[in-house]
């Protein structure tokens, strides 16, 4: 319990900070993140440019704030996509059983036989390297894990007596599903969705770092890191701050995810 509050607190603060930064970036940034300045190229952090400027003289802090928006937005849409599709597929699969389940799970397993990032790479080749391409690619790549988890939860719930009690009361399958099965799947869905948010942000920055994500000049943490790479010897801050942003965000999500898992895991609840 003690570790829960600490994990949850630190994680919560980090994520709140991320969302807040992204939100502020919508209305205000210290400088225009796109504005080039040839007089202030590769300027070290100073009072004017708190986190320095990049090779085109653009303000790093402003670009990081806009980058935070990209991360939050892409993360949010990806997770929503995977959660909605995965939950539907998992529910149908777990509830229908029989050959429907067999077919769905065979396809699901085949997709899970690809390492997530590899499938995303392949899908990016189809959708094109841009923001929405990434969202679809990652969303599709993550859907199978969500479907698997939801299906597992449904299968174990089906064995629980309260689902049988619902049948004995004469409730229809759909009613039972919506009233009893789905609400009790929310815990594992929440835990997984939280981790997925982290995976999505990490994958997005990795893909952007490879040049397959959001194309420059729009700033994301990944492509800022890639762009700054040739200059890191003269301008350490270009390699430091975008990476730090990603790392702190992931740390926040991981801590929050741990806290959620401790809290929502039924086994933990059983032990009190």
């Amino acid at each position: 319990m003690k570790t829960f509050s600490l994990n949850g607190l630190i994680g919560g603060i980090l994520i709140a900070f991320l969302v807040l930064t992204a939100a502020i970036g919508l209305v205000w940034t210290p400088f225009d993140p796109m504005k080039l300045s040839f007089t202030a190229k590769l300027a070290a952090p100073s009072a004017a440019h708190l986190l320095g400027t990049d090779e085109f003289g653009r303000d790093v802090l402003s670009r990081l704030m806009i980058g935070a928006q990209a991360s939050v937005w892409i993360g949010f849409l990806t997770v929503s996509f995977a959660t909605i599709c995965g939950t539907l597929i998992g529910l149908v699969s777990g509830y229908a059983r029989g050959w429907v389940d067999g077919v769905i799970m065979a396809v699901n397993n085949a997709l899970m036989a690809f390492p997530g990032i590899l499938l995303a790479l392949g899908l990016l080749a189809v959708f094109g390297a841009n923001q929405y391409g990434i969202i679809f690619a990652l969303g599709i790549a993550y859907t199978p894990s969500m479907a698997r988890v939801v299906r597992g939860a449904v299968l174990s719930l089906r064995e629980r007596e309260f689902i049988e009690a619902s049948r004995v009361m004469g409730n229809g399958e759909i009613f039972t599903m919506v009233r009893h099965v789905l609400p009790n799947c929310l815990a594992p869905i929440t835990v997984l969705a939280t981790s997925m948010f982290g995976w999505a942000i990490l994958s997005e920055s990795a893909l952007s770092f490879l040049g397959l994500g959001v194309p420059p000049p729009a700033p994301t943490w990944g492509n800022m890191l890639a762009a700054g790479r040739p200059f890191i010897q003269q301008a350490v801050w270009l390699g430091l701050f975008p990476g730090l942003c990603i790392a702190l965000t992931l740390l926040g999500i991981n801590l929050l995810g741990d806290a959620l898992r401790d809290r929502l895991d039924p086994r933990m609840r059983g032990l009190k």
Partner: peptide, 22 residues
């Protein structure tokens, strides 16, 4: 079935599992 469901009910063994926790 409808009449039967109205008139036949069941009590299960495990009170930890037979009530929807939510």
């Amino acid at each position: 079935w409808q009449d039967y469901r109205m008139n036949c009910q069941m009590v299960f063994q495990d009170p930890y599992s037979s009530l929807d926790p939510r």
